[in-house]
Design a protein around this nucleic acid. Structure first.
Lengths: 176, 176
DNA sequence: CTCCCACGTTCCAGTATTGACACGTCGCGG
DNA sequence: CCGCGACGTGTCAATACTGGAACGTGGGAG
C-alpha cells in the first residue's frame, strides 16, 4: 500500500521516470521500503489511472517522465499526516530470538554473538555513509539525514541489547 | 515465509491446536510477527502436507491437536541457525520521515512530536507488561523476556531520536 | 434445561510482493 | 561504424497477506 505513497513522495520533489525511481529505491530507500522493479512500474501505471500522477514528457527510448498532480499531492499529504502508521511490525530476527528455546543454550548464545557482530558492521557502514555524504539543506537531504541517524541509533541499540542478552543467558541459562 | 517457522517453533514447546496458536499470535507474538487466523490455519495444513507437523489427537469440536515431527524439528533448526535473517526492512514511519519535505516544516515538527509521544506510550505499556508478568526460567519465558527488553529499548531509542530530530529541525529548518 | 459464548475450522476474493523473463533502444568507446 | 552496456518498460506466475464470511459444537452460567 505504501509503495504508491513513496512514489508520490519522490515525484513531489520533481518529475522522474520509472527507471529513475527504481534507482532511488535500490539505493537510498531500500533499507526503509524495498520494492522490485515490476512493482514500481505497475504502481506507476495505477497511480496514473487514478489521476494522481501524469506523464509530463516522453523521452528517447520510450521513457516516460512522470509528474505529480494536485490530486496526488492531496493524497500524499493525507497519508503523511492523517493515516496512522503501522509502526514496526514483523521482525524475523526477534522472532528467532523468541523461539531460541528450540536449540541448545550454547547455540543460542552463538546466535546472539552473531547478531552483535552484524549490528556492529551495519552501524559502521552507516557511519561511513554519513561521513561520505555531503549534506545539503534541501528537504530530502535534511530528512534523509534524520532517517540515517535513526538507523545508526537502531544498530547501536541492537548491539547493546545483544551484549546485554548474552550476559543474561550466561547468568541464568533457561531451564529445560 | 516465516509464519510457518513460527508455528513450528511454538509447536516445538508442545502440541497445540490452530486455535491455541492463533491466541498466542494475537497476544505475545503479534508485535513481532502478526498473522491472521486464515493464514494460521492454511499454513498448518501446508505444514502437515509437508510432513513437518502431524495431527496428534482430535478433540471435542473438530479440534485437531498438532505436534511437530522430526522433519519439522530439522527444518526449524535449519531456519533458526542457518538461514540469514532479513533483519529490519519496511518501516512506514521512517518512510514518512524521509518524505516529510512534502509538508511544511511546522507540520513536520508536529509529526515528530506525535511520534515522540506515541513511543513514550508504547514504552510505558511494555514496562507495565514486564512488571505484571511473573517470569519463569523455562525457555519461552527467558527468551520472551529478551524480546520484551528489545521492545523497551527500541521505544526508548525512538523517543530519544525523535527529540533529537526535533531539535535538528528547530536548529536548521530545511531550505525550500 | 436452555441459551449463549468461547471454541474450533474452513473457504474465498482481493491485494501486495517477489523473481524472472521478454523486449526494444540510445550512445559512446574502441 | 559496430557492439555492448546502460537505459527503459512491460508482463507473468507464484506466493504472502488481509479481512471477512460461513458454519458447527461443547460446556458452563443462570
Amino acid at each position: 500500500m505504501s509503495l504508491r505513497h513513496a512514489l508520490l513522495g519522490l515525484l513531489d520533489t520533481g518529475p522522474a521516470s520509472g527507471y529513475d525511481l527504481m534507482r532511488t529505491f535500490n539505493s537510498t530507500l531500500s533499507a526503509v521500503w524495498p520494492a522490485t522493479q515490476s512493482q514500481v512500474y505497475t504502481d506507476l501505471n495505477r497511480l496514473a489511472e487514478a489521476g494522481q500522477i501524469r506523464v509530463a514528457a516522453e523521452g528517447p527510448r520510450g521513457r516516460k517522465s512522470y509528474e505529480i498532480t494536485a490530486a496526488g499531492r492531496e493524497e500524499l499529504r493525507h497519508w503523511l499526516l492523517e493515516v496512522a502508521p503501522d509502526g514496526y511490525r514483523r521482525n524475523d530476527v526477534l522472532l528467532r530470538v523468541f523461539l531460541l528455546g528450540a536449540v541448545s543454550p550454547s547455540e543460542a548464545r552463538e546466535f546472539l554473538r552473531q547478531r552483535h557482530a552484524i549490528s556492529g558492521r551495519h552501524r559502521a557502514a552507516l557511519e561511513e555513509r554519513d561521513a561520505g555524504t555531503d549534506w545539503d539543506d534541501d528537504p530530502l537531504s535534511v530528512y534523509g539525514r534524520l532517517t540515517l541517524e535513526w538507523g545508526k541509533r537502531f544498530m547501536t541499540m541492537q548491539q547493546e541489547w545483544s551484549a546485554w542478552a548474552l550476559e543474561q543467558l550466561e547468568k541464568a541459562p533457561p531451564h529445560t
